Computed example of a mutant assay.
Amino acid sequence: MSSDAKPVLTGGCQCGAVRFALSAVPMKISICHCRMCQKASGAPFASFADIPHEHFAWTRGKPAAYRSSSIAMRDFCAACGTPLSFRRIGGPRIEIMTGAFDRPDRVIPTLQYGTESRLGWVGTIVNLPSKTTLQNYGPEKLGEIVSHQHPDHD
């Protein structure tokens, strides 16, 4: 990403030690249900925004990396542990975890991979009873919580 390019999307880790910016819209946005992505994200699936390296930059700090297979690296914040990306070693693109974006509502998945490992209940979660955070904690308890999370902007 050139230094004069205006960011299209930004994001970073939970503590703010690592931040990134994209100068173009992602090529694709996907969900991966494979077992490796489940373990790497600590979640039932991972969601990624795929962007060529030339349209991506780490803008604050540098992530730590883990070689999760013979073909891939996964970047994460060494300070807070937030998973940040998946990238093929020597590949032309980086795939950024959609939850790490400041505006994850702007990166909407359009395809799925690794469906052989998709958990059976994933498709039915929309039908589960739900509460907002305020409903769950109540106004008094929610008012006592102090967040140490970096805001969703620089």
Rank of each mutant, 00 (worst) to 15 (best):
G91D: 07
E144N: 13
H53R: 09
H55P: 04
R106P: 01
P26I: 01
D152E: 15
T10E: 05
R103N: 11
Y66S: 10
A65N: 08
I145W: 15
F86T: 04
F86V: 04
H33W: 09
G81I: 02
I145D: 11
A72M: 05
S23H: 04
T10C: 06
K141P: 14
H33A: 14
C13T: 07
A49D: 01
G123F: 01
L9W: 00
E116A: 13
A17R: 10
L111M: 12
G12C: 07
S41Q: 14
V126M: 11
S147N: 13
R35D: 14
H150W: 13
R74L: 04
I94A: 00
P109S: 02
M73K: 08
C37R: 10
T110E: 04
A64S: 12
P63M: 07
W121Q: 15
H55M: 03
A40K: 03
S68Q: 08
F45D: 07
E140L: 14
P7S: 05
A57M: 07
T133S: 12
F86Y: 10
G91I: 07
T98P: 00
A40G: 13
R60P: 12
Q14F: 11
C77T: 06
T110H: 03
M36E: 12
W58I: 08
H150K: 11
S147D: 10
T82I: 06
L134D: 14
G114C: 12
W121L: 12
G99L: 02
T82N: 05
I125N: 12
E140I: 13
V146N: 13
S41Y: 03
A65L: 10
P26M: 00
R88N: 10
G114P: 14
W58K: 10
D75K: 04
V122A: 09
P139G: 13
I51T: 03
P83F: 02
I96W: 00
L84T: 02
M97K: 05
A65P: 06
R93G: 05
L119N: 15
D102R: 05
A100S: 09
C15A: 12
S23W: 01
L111R: 08
R19L: 09
T133K: 12
S68G: 11
A79H: 09
P83M: 03
K141C: 14
I31S: 05
C80R: 06
I89H: 03
G12W: 05
W121D: 12
N127V: 15
A49G: 02
H150D: 10
E95I: 02
S147Q: 15
F76K: 04
Y137Q: 15
A72C: 07
A49P: 00
R118M: 08
F56G: 01
I96P: 00
P83D: 03
Y113M: 13
G143P: 07
H148Y: 11
P52E: 06
G123Y: 03
F86M: 07
R87F: 01
G81H: 04
K39L: 11
Q149E: 11
Q38F: 09
D50T: 08
L111N: 11
N127K: 15
C80E: 08
A64D: 13
G123H: 02
D50K: 04
G12Y: 03
I29A: 01
R35Q: 15
